[in-house]
Every structure is written in C-alpha cells, then in structure tokens.
Write a protein that binds this DNA or RNA. Structure first.
Lengths: 205, 205
DNA sequence: AATAATTTTAATCAATTGATTAAAATTATT
DNA sequence: AATAATTTTAATCAATTGATTAAAATTATT
C-alpha cells in the first residue's frame, strides 16, 4: 500500500514546487500549496515546520536542477566545439521542460542573495572541469581567441535563458502564439550556436 | 512653497518605484511604501485608490523606460554597425543606472502577462524603424547574413540584460566583489559587441 | 475674516496569513 | 487483541494587510 499512492510528504513537496515556481515565495500562501496537494494545511507544518523551510527545500532542489546537468556536459569526452553545442542543447531542453525555472531562480536569488549557499564551490568545480582544460589548450594553440571561461559560460547562459525568460515579452511584441514561439526559439537556438562557435573559433582582429 | 518640497503624490510615486522594484508587487506592503515616503499610509489610497492602481502606474513608467531609449537609438542617422554598438551601449547604461529594472519587468510580466498592454504597437514601430530598413538593405546587398530583426534584437537584449539580472549568481559563483563585477561587465560588453557584430557581418557558411 | 475645498491624520475594519493545538484517525508494536 | 506511536483533521490564534472612515489640519476662495 505504501507504493500505490505517494506519501503526504512527497505530495506536499511536489505541490510546493509547482506553486512556488509559478507564483514565487511572496506570491504563494501555504493554503495554495495545501490545496494543490489536496491535503490539510496543517500537514505542511507537520512535515516541514514552516513555509520558509519548505521553500528552502524547494529552492535547493531547483538550484541543483539548474546546474546539475551542466557539470556533466562540461566533463563529457567530446571536442570543445561539440561541447559548446551540447551545453546549449542541454540548457535549451532543461528550460523547455521547466519553463518557470529560469525566472524562479533568478528572481528568488535577487530577492534574497544569501539563499545561494553552494554545497559545492562552483568556481573550483568549473575551473577544474574538462571543459576548462580544453579551453586553455585551445587558447594556447591559438585555435580559439583568448577568453576566460567566465565569459564563455555567461554567453551561453544569457542567450539560452533569456529566450525563455523573455517569452511573454517576445510573444506580446511580435504577436506570436505558442506554436510560432516554439519555432522562433528553435531558430534562435541555431543562431546562438552558430554565433558563439564562430566567435570563439576565429582569431582576433 | 509649492516648489520647495515635492508633493505628496510625487513622493508616494517615487517611494513606490523604489520599493516595488526592490521587492516586487507581492513582496511589497502599502505600509512599506508609506514608510519609505515618510507619509501616512492612508494617503496612498487617497491619491492612487489602491495598491494595484499605484503599481500599474509604476509598471507602465518602468516599461516606458525599458523601451524608451531603444526606439530613439534605432532611428538615429548612423550606420548599421555603429547602431548595433549604440544599442548595446544604451541598454548597458540603462541597466547600470537601474539595476533592478531588468528583473522587475521580466518577473512582473511573468506573474501577470496581461500587464503588457502596449500603448504603441511595438511590432509596427520596430518593423518601420530606420534600423529595420538598414537591416533589410544590408541583407539584400549581402553585407550581412540573412536574419530577422526579431532575432537581432533578442540577441542584443539577452546578452546585455542577463549580465545584470545574473549579477548575484555571477558574483557568488566566481567570488567577485562589486568592483570586480563592474570590470567583468565592461569586458563582457566588449565581447558581446564584437561577437554580435562579427556574426552579422560575415557571410553564411 | 469667514467659508469652502482640499489634504492629512489616527483609529479602525474585515479578510488573509503562517502557525499551533488538541482531538481524532490510522498504523505499528507488543 | 491491547497499547503505543504516528499521521491527519478541524478549530482556532495572533499578526499582518489593504482599505475605509470620520475628524483634524491646511489651503484656497469669496
């Protein structure tokens, strides 16, 4: 019987993820979450003590999701050029699956920067990644222009993330429906990949 | 005496801009605004009727600011290449002056898409801009690769906006202080300008 | 100067919110 | 089967919130 239905704790967590991502911490009431989970609202405090603690749990999980796949891709045994494509593809798919994620992370971090307490030290992990090594070698061999990994990753993240974060604005300005937007996003992904690749793999003027 | 101090209405509006941009609609209480303005909280309703109406007034003004300068730059009598630089410079300066603006607009639009009721129809204004014409001519003459204005503007907006929206994350991940971040941002602006310009002004493979 | 109109204030309201409590219901242990 | 431990529920609390009201204070008009 345990496995037939999800535990109350899991249902609360699941509902919390959905509601918090949609409405943010300030816009969410504990009753919203209880209603979404179909449970008595006191249960939320029984399992998670407080709204803040439940939120922290959700935020941490989303932050993991936000970076999880990135590290895996950065350490794959593929060429630098392929890897840049792969990172873009990965982020694109992630945001396509979780459309609210980009806005959620950025906004909640903006409201309360101290929420970003990384379990792992990202800078070290990134600097010691296979990707970082490949980048260094390529720069040394003058295969790509001289550029820091900070800038490369920001270029990729900026271009992908804003497609989805700015969806509402894009659709409003250019009168796109969802289908048209999806097509536009796919095209834009190709443009980004071309642009970044071409920029890196060209000597400086 | 009228001109010595700002009117109560102006002080409320000013305080509202500050607090709403910092905390968002949901995170702001009317008492926060009254306190920031140093006025009795009932005055807010006397002048603006409700929190929602005051917010709308602030949001509209910020949306204007968000797009205002852009149109001016797009219609300047300068070359296409110079114009791309100019748009980037303009947006960069705007977000530097108003660090919370990017997040505010995107987030509030995300929460409530219907807030974007454009007084002017952006698509028409943009499509008929000098910039759009220059782009068309340049594509026809094969000076730049074939690309739609939608993509070009998104490329610029994405790259600039995310520098500032992602500031907290960038600083946390790479352990930057504010001074280091400013330097990083300036460098990144140059990279973006080079990258976009180079991509556009190159023939397709 | 007297009166009318406008602005500002303190007090208060009803609704909402995060959280707690004590009892009821269910499950696990002996 | 009896008892203990855990989970769930309904009722309730105090604090906060957006908004209103009636009176006071200020400014404008006659």
């Amino acid at each position: 019987m345990k496995c037939l239905t999800k535990s109350a704790e899991d249902r609360i967590k699941e509902a919390a993820i959905k509601v918090f991502l949609e409405k943010g911490f300030d816009g969410t009431t504990t009753r919203d979450i209880a209603k979404e989970a179909g449970l008595n609202s006191a249960l939320m405090n029984y399992y998670f003590r407080s709204k803040e603690k439940l939120f922290s749990s959700v935020f941490e999980e989303m932050l993991q999701l936000f970076f999880k796949g990135l590290l895996e891709v950065l350490n794959r045994p593929i060429s630098l050029k392929q890897k840049i494509s792969a990172v873009i593809d990965h982020d694109f798919e992630m945001f396509k699956t979780n459309p609210d994620l980009a806005n959620f992370i950025i906004n909640e971090l903006h409201r309360n920067p101290d929420r970003f307490f990384s379990v792992i030290s990202f800078d070290k992990v990134l600097v010691h990644s296979v990707f970082a090594q490949q980048l260094k070698v390529a720069v040394d061999n003058e295969e790509i222009r001289e550029i820091k990994i900070e800038h490369v990753l920001l270029l990729i993240k900026s271009n992908i993330q804003f497609i989805f974060q700015g969806k509402v604005m894009t659709c409003k300005i250019w009168n796109m429906n969802d289908k048209q937007f999806d097509e536009f996003a796919e095209n834009h992904k190709i443009i980004i990949t071309d642009m970044i690749t071409q920029y890196l793999f060209s000597s400086e003027k």
